[in-house]
Design a protein around this nucleic acid. Sequence first.
DNA 1: GTCTATATACAGATAGAC
DNA 2: GTCTATCTGTATATAGAC
Lengths: 203, 203
Amino acid sequence: MSNRGRTKSDKKNRQILEAAIKLFVGSGYHNTSMDEIAASAGVSKQTIYSHFSNKQELFKSAVQSRRSDFLGAELALDTEAPPRDTLRKFATALLKLLLSEDVVRTRRVCDAEAESHPEVAAAYFSEGPEHTTRMLSAYLKKLHDSGQLTISNPDHAAIQLLYMLTGEAQMRALLNQPVWTDEQVMDYLDSSIEMFMRAYAAQ
Amino acid sequence: MSNRGRTKSDKKNRQILEAAIKLFVGSGYHNTSMDEIAASAGVSKQTIYSHFSNKQELFKSAVQSRRSDFLGAELALDTEAPPRDTLRKFATALLKLLLSEDVVRTRRVCDAEAESHPEVAAAYFSEGPEHTTRMLSAYLKKLHDSGQLTISNPDHAAIQLLYMLTGEAQMRALLNQPVWTDEQVMDYLDSSIEMFMRAYAAQ
DNA sequence: GTCTATATACAGATAGAC
DNA sequence: GTCTATCTGTATATAGAC
């Protein structure tokens, strides 16, 4: 009676997905075995195969279930506040997100599997960096339209700003290299935002 | 007699390294077996173990043997030509290098193994992006000293410029996403270099 | 639907002949 | 030094009981 209306146990499904994503992003796709996932999820291996047809399917579902977690809620771009303040808040929140263990490891797995699981990498790209770029571009266009800055190509400007702010830090994180201190980061972000404002100052 | 003065066959050593790097960067570390490497190198598996103590050692040696290939010779920064021209040439050559299959795949493997093989990732970082940043910073300092631009912090400026130019394209390549057309790329590079020159224009 | 037990393949690494 | 043959562990995936 308890399973009326559904064919599989939703609870176990969730358990499996959570264990899978944890192990996949922690150790990589090839380095994670179905046995480990079963043990970590507290179910038998056969139960996994009854929910997901094979390891590749499970990987896809697991990464997709995780993606929405990253659509950072704090990344809002406040159009009321002064651009400097808005951009500083945005950059700080974004960097914190991009440097978190979870995001770094998920990104590594998506990169590594980009050729064998193109849909996974494509989904990551469109809901991650591409989405952020679109948001930023729309914000910059508003700044242009309101005369606060002069930006003839907001798409280019958004890409310039985004990767200027995050590129180095993210590369260091992906390659597991020492990251800057908070003070250095703030210093760099501030000088980069100033540089951006100078380049696109209202005429 | 033919092996006098050396303990192992240099030729087979090279064969093994070449096969290993090809397979490692093509399929990733965990997805490449010693059997495949042996077959591709045209030697027996035991021969590999007589040259390299285990798979991890072989991986390290293979990636290190490959690294020097990437120290792009065409990345010179011409201090005589006008900055716009020098930067455009630099950006074009750098992007071509960063988007090549070899570099993309090597970078993916270094990222994926950054935690289990930290020395490999560290070497890639210092001889790759860090080296490029240092070169660019030194060039920008010269521009400042000669009065062509006003750059109070060349290290920051170098990072800003480098990732502004390459960040998006490289991310697309790593995630196996469609890259821009040559025309779009040139357009973006030009507008970014102009943006940089505006921000650091001589006072 | 879920479990235990197992089939089958292949991984990394070694033994021993030449 | 190099080979063929093999050991040992572990991977994905499946069979069959409950």
